[in-house]
Design a protein around this nucleic acid. Sequence first.
DNA 1: ACAATAAGCGGAGTCGACTCCGCTTGCAAG
DNA 2: CTTGCAAGCGGAGTCGACTCCGCTTATTGT
Lengths: 190, 190
Amino acid sequence: MPRSMRADAQANYDRIVEAAARTFATEGADTSLKAIAAEAGVGIGTLYRRFPTREDLIEAVYRNETDRLCSAVPQLLEAHGPVEALRQWMEAFVDYMLTKQGMADALPAILADREGLRLHSREALGEAVSTLLDAAIAAGRVRGDASPGDVLMAVGGITLISGHEHQRDLASRLITLLLDGLTASVGPTA
Amino acid sequence: MPRSMRADAQANYDRIVEAAARTFATEGADTSLKAIAAEAGVGIGTLYRRFPTREDLIEAVYRNETDRLCSAVPQLLEAHGPVEALRQWMEAFVDYMLTKQGMADALPAILADREGLRLHSREALGEAVSTLLDAAIAAGRVRGDASPGDVLMAVGGITLISGHEHQRDLASRLITLLLDGLTASVGPTA
DNA sequence: ACAATAAGCGGAGTCGACTCCGCTTGCAAG
DNA sequence: CTTGCAAGCGGAGTCGACTCCGCTTATTGT
């Protein structure tokens, strides 16, 4: 285990995330990083040390909310059939990504498999999809060879293109199409 | 009809596109626009007048090749069944977007429905998908309510996410999934 | 306590994107 | 040919992203 952060560094880290959250909320996601650093009362160099890319910062800002999205899976599975649960989760995913300032822009970086340790959100999302998919497969509603990773990427792609198009409806239609693909050649189980 | 471009302006336009094509090919798509302007022998202001965004420039550079991709549709339909033709065109689309320097980055702007006159490539692509889809529907292999616009966006989304992930395989798997969705509940026609 | 040192800090500097506006010029009407 | 002017030009200026490195300080072992 690598020795943990120095106390002052930890404090700065927290203040940067808070400042970023505040600034994103009021000024939008394209605020200059310099402004965020100033708001946090640190130098620009310090910000870059902790968050080498803008995406790293965004990921940190929204980490809690991402967790919440993922931890909603069990309730969804209780309240609905597995396919409907999957649909609703995907809709929530898209809403979430499109609503939170800057999140959509960071999505590629978050989903990306790059060496980095941006693992947290990625793992959480992967598990959420995995759970939903397993349930649907177990219920015989989705074919067994469906890959959670691929499905996550598909939802990511849907989010990206819908976001760029500013067409929320498009996302819903594509989600339906995706579900059709996943449930194909399995036939209604009754 | 808006009076056409002044002769010297037209010449500059052409030189900029040529310079950009040359520079993208040798230096990659992230070359500075200043460098392209210099290569073309014009001021940076002139470049921006003609191509307000980097995407506009990229679209212009690759317009011919996009047309070629679209005009290949008839051959595909001759050589293959409609579903297979659709698949192959999608694969070609992804290859093309991922291969041409910078094209993937410009994709959202090209597909976007924004007021602007970035119509050419968008229209060509839309027609290509439309033709392929009509053929598949006519053959009873794809359900009739499939929307060409949605399918184009879906392929765009697949391209974006696969590009960010540097996983060409992912694109093929997602294309298969998409086709499954499109052909769902139509049953093999024999 | 205190010294050694690794971790951290911050801001000046570099580079590219994009804007703005005063100067230049193709071109068409007379 | 001349002239009026819309169209066009170009580059200095502004702003943000990102790097680099000399200075500062929390921590840890003695």
